[in-house]
Structures are given as C-alpha cells and as structure tokens.
Computed example of a mutant assay.
Amino acid sequence: MMRQVQALLFDLDGTLVDSAPDMAVAVDRMLVDVGLAAAGEDRVRGWVGNGARRLVMRALTGRVDGEPPEADVDHALALFLRYYEERLSVRSRLYPGTRSGLDRLRADGYGLACVTNKPERLARQLLSDLGLDDLLPVVVGGDTLTVRKPDPAPLHHAMAALAVPAEQTLMVGDSRADVEAGRNAGTGVVCVPYGYSQGEDVNALAPDVVVASIEELHGFLRGAA
C-alpha cells in the first residue's frame, strides 16, 4: 500500500491544527447563554472530534454520548457557530511539523486534501487563516455532503477531486471516525497520537501506521517509496 500512495486526505482538528482553545471559548459562551456552567478547555478537548453538532450535544449534557432534545441542540448550535466564527483562529495553532510536512509532501507530488467534520466554510477559513489553503485546495467538510465521516462518501468525494483511487490514497487522522472512514472507503489509514480521540489510544484502533507528526509521515513515505 505505502509504495503506491499518490494522495493523502487529512483530518483537520486534532491532526493538522490544535483548534480546541478557540472552540472552548465558543462552547463556554454558548453554555453560559443557555444557563449552564462553562466547561473549560480541558473538558472541551475531550468532546471534539465528530463535528460541531456532536460537540454541542456533548457540551449540553456533559457526556460523550449525550442526546439532548433537538430543539435545544439547534438553538445551542447556532450560538456556538456564531461565537466560534468570531474567533476561529485566535489561539488555534498548527501542530509541530504540519507546515513543513505538507510542504514536502506537495513538493514530492502527492495530491493533498482536507476531509473534516467541521462545517466546510469554517474549515476553509481556518485553513486560510493558518496559511494552509494553498496546500489543501480540496476541502470536504461535515456539511459538504449529506453524510460525514465515518461514512466513506466524503473521502470518495475528495478522491474524485484529486483523481486518485482508494488503493493509492491514505486517510490521515487522529480518531476512530478517521480510521473507520478510511477502512470504509478502502484507503490506507495513518494516525497521529496527539489529537482528539475521546480518550482512545489510537494504536488500539489498528491504523496501518502511527506517526508523531506530518513531517514524520513525509519521511516514512520517502522511506517506503
């Protein structure tokens, strides 16, 4: 698999960008608005990873599998998105090795895309704010299609845009949703250990490879070529 790789699909939050600090501020403002106590960044980090709606559901209930009433979620989600858009990249930062790794992968001719459960508009703005939009022109967000990861459709959509088949593609992420999406789509799967995995050890998810950074991923692919 690794010798045939032509394209890489990257998750965004927790893989390329540590975005939890800004999301936490928006979550806490939302919680206060709906009459609940602020959660704080540490708790919010444990809730990130399955899209904005699921993040809000977890915040409202304090549980990873929380299921509050839909009307409450709709109201809180609108508040969260408004607050989050106001400070999308104030404290969010690229993980070490992200920019250099993407630069080297692009220079080596790999097709690169971002496949995230974040709303596409916000994902594109965050990538632009952090200077990655030139490296990741193909962006598939959580609302680009009617389904999102771990459904394989977003990955297939990105692969079609890159004109690369699944057997020549790697999904690179930090969580179960990324691993399952890659398996469902028929791609190889690479994980980073530092992101938002809701407490799961990514090694236990059985990806093909775990790398410490995107820069290390580039080195690994060079060694496998």
Rank of each mutant, 00 (worst) to 15 (best):
V202T: 07
R121Y: 14
A24P: 06
R53E: 12
D74K: 10
A39C: 02
Q168P: 08
P69D: 13
V48R: 06
L55Y: 00
D133K: 05
L130A: 11
A26E: 02
D134W: 10
R63M: 11
L77Y: 05
M23R: 08
S175R: 14
E216R: 07
S19Y: 01
S92P: 03
H156N: 15
V32H: 05
G14H: 00
M57L: 11
G51W: 02
R3M: 09
V190N: 02
R91C: 01
P96S: 09
L132K: 10
L77G: 00
D28L: 09
T61L: 00
L132A: 06
P68I: 02
Y196V: 01
Y110C: 05
A153T: 05
K118A: 09
D72L: 15
A7T: 14
P68Y: 11
S175G: 13
G173C: 09
Y110E: 06
A38D: 11
D133G: 10
S89F: 00
G97K: 09
T146S: 15
L145F: 08
M30F: 06
N117E: 12
A224T: 11
L60T: 03
H156A: 09
N184F: 07
D133C: 02
D72G: 15
R3A: 15
V138T: 09
P69F: 00
R176T: 12
V90T: 06
V73N: 05
P150T: 04
R91L: 10
V73E: 02
A107Y: 13
F10C: 11
D72K: 07
V209Y: 13
F220Y: 12
G97T: 09
A76T: 08
L122W: 05
A7S: 05
R43M: 07
V34N: 03
G131T: 05
H75Q: 15
V179C: 04
D103W: 04
L102G: 03
A177L: 03
L60R: 00
S89L: 01
L88H: 12
E85P: 12
Y84Q: 08
R93L: 14
F10L: 09
T15G: 12
T98F: 01
V34S: 02
A224L: 10
F80C: 02
Q4T: 15
N184M: 05
H218R: 10
A37W: 00
Y83W: 15
V190L: 04
A113N: 13
D74H: 11
A158Q: 05
V190H: 08
S19V: 03
K118H: 12
A7N: 14
D33K: 12
V179I: 12
E215P: 09
G131Y: 11
V140E: 06
F10Q: 00
N184S: 05
P96H: 08
Y95Q: 04
